[in-house]
Design a protein around this nucleic acid. Structure first.
Lengths: 207, 207
DNA sequence: ATTAAAATTAATCATTTGATTAAATCTTTT
DNA sequence: AAAAGATTTAATCAAATGATTAATTTTAAT
């Protein structure tokens, strides 16, 4: 029978089951990606019966899209308010971006690799199109970059700043697996970069 | 019955079927990752019967490990001879790295995201451990970096150079999907960076 | 040409996996 | 307390999937 059930106001009560599933989904999806994740993995991680996953979220894909939207939002939400601010200088923006990004990624180290590889596998999952695109092409940050260096495409500098912030987290599995750095050392390393990146950015844009 | 078949010398003849399967595997695995790849996808891409895949390669996993080893080799093989060369200066090394990496990645744009996300999912796939680790900690390049800037951990500069080369390719699916750049524009963009990155590296290390 | 080995195919297996169902338990309302 | 609704569970389904088998065709050797 089709979907004509009476929708009750969501019982604001405990909500713990639904949230536990979502949290488990965040963990497992981020760790293994969409395809390698079994709904049973999520159920086990959440400590619930498998059928509850479909009871609350209809399907694996629906649940994934929920998590994915969250993660994409987190990945771009960090810079959006910074790059559109008309009251901060170029250097201040880079300081804020490096600080905000590295802080957030330290707590969500798997985030970039997860989002980027899922978008590769399934670009439609990336509903954010215009939003994210405009940050990279029409923000006040871009305007300031062009003003300072009209001879170089602003995306070069944006990519440089983002790559220097994000890349260590993308390379994390390799650095750890190859025995180059422990997780703790990597934390110190990226923390150091918060100040370095600004210095390097200044040197690059003035060169 | 166990594996006691007589192994004949491989018929050096055509070899086309085996190679076609391997080539199809390269394509599909790189595009979709291990978990999302169906052996039937590979068989179809290669235009062969599914059973032949197992006839030649025993299993999906064996075939994958073959492809993975190749790809890891390609990703690290590019820099190995450059960073260990005792007859080139620091700046020359960066020039060579940027050129070699961007050239190779232009022809294998999906390579970094593939290797990095598979290593995340299954670190054991990364048999390269010591080899790759030493490149990042014991190469002549590292020695030169320490000599020039003993006050800053050399890995900062290594990560900076690598990130500026590789990151645009990792971000490629987002840049295209978000409408920021077409594939062609991205090619021009990364080509430009071959010279820029050296200039930026000099500015950074002297700052 | 005959024979043996190698390559290829269609059919099939066993497991995994996302999803559903029907019954049971818990909660809320009356 | 009884009824109704919401939540949870065990059992099961159907499709997908990696792999195998047994037969057939092709290739190579004698």
């Amino acid at each position: 029978m089709p979907q004509i059930k009476i929708i009750m106001a969501p019982k604001s009560k405990d909500a713990s089951t639904e949230e536990r599933i979502k949290e488990a989904a965040r963990t497992v999806f981020t760790q293994k990606g969409y395809s390698a994740t079994r709904t049973r993995d999520i159920a086990e991680e959440a400590g619930i019966n498998l059928a509850l996953l479909n009871y609350y979220f209809r399907s694996k894909e629906k649940l994934f899209e929920l998590v994915m939207a969250e993660k994409v939002g987190k990945l771009f939400g960090v810079i959006a308010p910074i790059v559109n601010n008309q009251n901060t200088s170029l250097d201040e923006k880079v300081t804020l971006i490096a600080d905000a990004y590295i802080t957030m990624l330290t707590q969500n180290p798997g985030l970039p690799l997860f989002v980027l590889s899922e978008i590769r596998n399934n670009p439609e999952h990336f509903g954010n199109k215009m939003q994210a695109g405009k940050l990279l092409t029409e923000s006040y940050f871009v305007k300031q970059l062009i003003e300072k260096r009209p001879d170089i495409h602003p995306l070069h500098f944006i990519i440089n700043v983002l790559s220097m912030c994000i890349f260590p987290f993308i390379a994390k599995p390799v650095l750890e697996s190859a025995g180059v750095m422990s997780a703790n050392q990597l934390n110190d390393f990226t923390e150091e970069r918060k100040t370095f990146i600004v210095k390097w950015f200044k040197a690059m844009i003035d060169s």
